[in-house]
Design a protein around this nucleic acid. Structure first.
Length: 231
DNA sequence: TAGGCCATCTGGTCCT
DNA sequence: AGGACCAGATGGCCTA
């Protein structure tokens, strides 16, 4: 949650409060013992869990073990969130402190579209280079950087706009939803159906359009920290 | 107030 | 046996 709540939101259940933060593990244990053991399902401010009848180890050992497992799980999730933050940082999307973070699902979907767009751009560039320099270079390019096998060539503009989504423009203060990002949670292979690839051009709110019609193609997509989604 | 998003707890499963 | 991973459950925070 450090990653999720840290920058723009003020959730009270920050893991930093627990691990190496305001509350130490000892304090937690003391709290648990005061409460009569680890948080029972359905109670406690940290959420609950399933209440399956389970074999319970002896109380103290069981508590220690449970705390250890919980701690590991928290750490694992923190690592996952850190990785998610790292992904957000390299996305062509607003990264400023005043900008609301992309949700996890939106981050993943946008990342997927971004990768597809970059792949298509690469193909496009290779094609252009091949056209300019002729067959020998094309052969060289094909040998050095073969295109992914199942990646059909799509117009660059379309792929770029597919990255930005083709659905209705959401309000600028709201993060793009999964639907807005152009996906409907299909498990089909990339670019196969690609309903998001043949939409009409649409401009991402607050975001300069990256298509070749609107601006010259740069070698890498710039960071766009000015997109404000409010909050 | 409902819904979305999230962190956390928890038990189960798989792997080393 | 211990750890990693996963998914279900729960409650908190925030926004429309």
């Amino acid at each position: 949650m450090d990653s999720d709540a840290g920058s723009t939101s003020s959730r009270s259940s920050s893991p930093e409060l627990v691990e190496g933060g305001i509350f130490s593990n000892h304090m937690l244990q003391a709290f648990y013992q005061e409460q009569g053991g680890p948080l029972k399902p359905g109670m406690g401010h940290m959420g609950g869990g399933k209440s399956k009848s389970g074999k319970q180890p002896p109380k103290d050992e069981g508590q220690d073990l449970r705390l250890k497992v919980n701690s590991r799980e928290r750490k694992r999730m923190h690592d996952l969130n850190q990785a998610m933050d790292g992904l957000r940082e390299v996305m062509p999307y607003a990264n400023g402190p005043s900008v609301r973070k992309l949700s996890k699902i939106s981050t993943l979907l946008l990342a997927r579209n971004y990768i597809l767009m970059l792949s298509n751009s690469l193909d496009e560039m290779k094609k252009l280079v091949g056209d300019v320099y002729g067959g020998s270079h094309q052969t060289h390019m094909a040998r050095c950087a073969p295109a992914p096998p199942q990646m059909p060539l799509y117009p660059l503009g379309h792929s770029l706009h597919s990255l930005m989504g083709t659905a209705a423009t959401p309000p600028t203060h709201a993060p793009p939803s999964a639907t807005y990002l152009g996906f409907h949670a299909t498990h089909e292979s990339p670019l196969k159906d690609a309903p998001h690839l043949h939409g009409s051009y649409r401009h991402f709110p607050g975001m300069p359009c990256p298509c070749s019609l609107c601006q010259p193609l740069s070698s890498s997509l710039p960071r766009l920290p000015t997109l404000s989604m409010g909050k």
